[in-house]
Design a protein around this nucleic acid. Structure first.
Length: 200
DNA sequence: CAAGTGATTAGC
DNA sequence: CTAATCACTTGC
């Protein structure tokens, strides 16, 4: 198992679709309040390709208080709040000033499952982290982590099980972006085929 | 299938 | 300033 944090160069590559696929099978980690680890293997991602992607918050090069984070260097966390109740955890990719990002949509719980069950009382284990808002609840991720460096100590990603073979990766249209006209149907959502932990 | 919830954004 | 919208989840 790759016990080390993914290096900066993993994130600064120029093809956000490649990074979105290669994030599958990696271990997302946050420290628990007591210092233990809470973690899960990434099983579902979506790529958002900055200025030319109508579905991206940074479409057209938009720079606002919220989207400023997307222009940070690859390997920065982009965390925002939607629908009045849910946080979303994204990984900024590419070099500084290119606003590409990958939304992490689902995890397979690995460490700290007891903590996750407490935070998501009543849910089956398959439902603890099977959605972008759910996994933020389970891991305790909120906007305090926006702009956090993924090579730091507040949230990071390790090699995990390593890259998932291309044959085991499924792709389809992204969720919740019906407003994005031509970009709506692009198959930029990736998941581990047969994983019971992906979102619905 | 629709409500809920509040930050964010565009537009005046 | 106001009003519409939203990279979702849950329970009806």
């Amino acid at each position: 198992m790759g016990d080390r944090k993914l290096p900066r160069a993993f994130y600064t590559r120029t093809n956000v679709l490649t990074v979105a696929r290669e994030l599958l099978g990696r271990l997302l980690v946050v420290p628990a309040p007591d210092g233990a680890r809470i973690s899960g293997l990434i099983v579902e991602t979506e790529a958002y390709r900055g200025p030319d992607d109508r579905a991206s918050h940074a479409y057209g090069g938009r720079r606002t208080d919220r989207t400023r984070t997307m222009y940070a260097v690859g390997g920065t966390a982009y965390v925002y709040f939607v629908y009045g109740m849910h946080h979303q955890f994204n990984v900024v990719t590419n070099v500084e000033d290119v606003p590409h990002a990958v939304l992490v949509r689902a995890l397979e719980p690995v460490e700290g499952i007891d903590v996750m069950r407490r935070r998501r009382r009543g849910r089956a284990d398959e439902g603890l982290t099977s959605g972008p808002g759910k996994l933020c609840l389970a891991l305790g991720i909120d906007r305090a982590l926006d702009r956090a460096d993924l090579l730091g100590e507040r949230v990071w990603i390790e090699g995990g099980r390593g890259p998932i073979p291309r044959s085991a990766i499924a792709a389809g249209p992204r969720i919740g972006i019906d407003y994005a006209d031509a970009w709506r149907d692009k198959p930029w959502r990736f998941w581990v085929r047969n994983s019971p932990f992906v979102s619905r």
